[in-house]
């Protein structure tokens, strides 16, 4: 059965973007390689979704070096966290409506 998408965040329509956001909300910050390992996605795929979230200002990026290796870390921004919460509430409301 089809259900209405009220309050749904376009940015989180994609599964991987929603997963990235859940990891970043639960952690202070997370680096690219750990995210890749956790979500079992390819470099290019993850990078493009991270770019999209960055463009929406849902996450912030900080680049540094560990020895000679570049280390890119991601944090959820305030805007991102509140968008994520709203999205979850929308999901929960949908479930409640269906139980009625």
């Amino acid at each position: 059965m089809k259900i209405a998408l009220v309050n749904f965040d376009k940015a989180f329509e994609n599964r991987i973007r929603l997963q990235v956001m859940s990891v970043l909300v639960a952690n202070e910050s997370y680096d690219f390689n750990s995210l890749k390992e956790l979500l079992e996605v390819t470099d290019g795929n993850l990078a493009s979704h991270l770019k999209a979230l960055e463009k929406d200002e849902y996450i912030t990026v900080s680049k540094s070096f560990v020895g000679r290796k570049p280390n890119t870390r991601y944090q959820a921004s305030k805007k991102g966290i509140s968008a994520f919460k709203k999205h979850l509430e929308a999901l929960e409301n949908l479930i409640k409506q269906q139980k009625l």
Binding site: R15, Q19, S22, V23, V25, N27, L88, E92
Partner: peptide, 14 residues
């Protein structure tokens, strides 16, 4: 599935 995947990820990542 979406909600349970969010929950496991939050748990597994921390």
């Amino acid at each position: 599935a979406e909600i349970s995947s969010i929950r496991t990820l939050m748990e597994r990542s921390t």
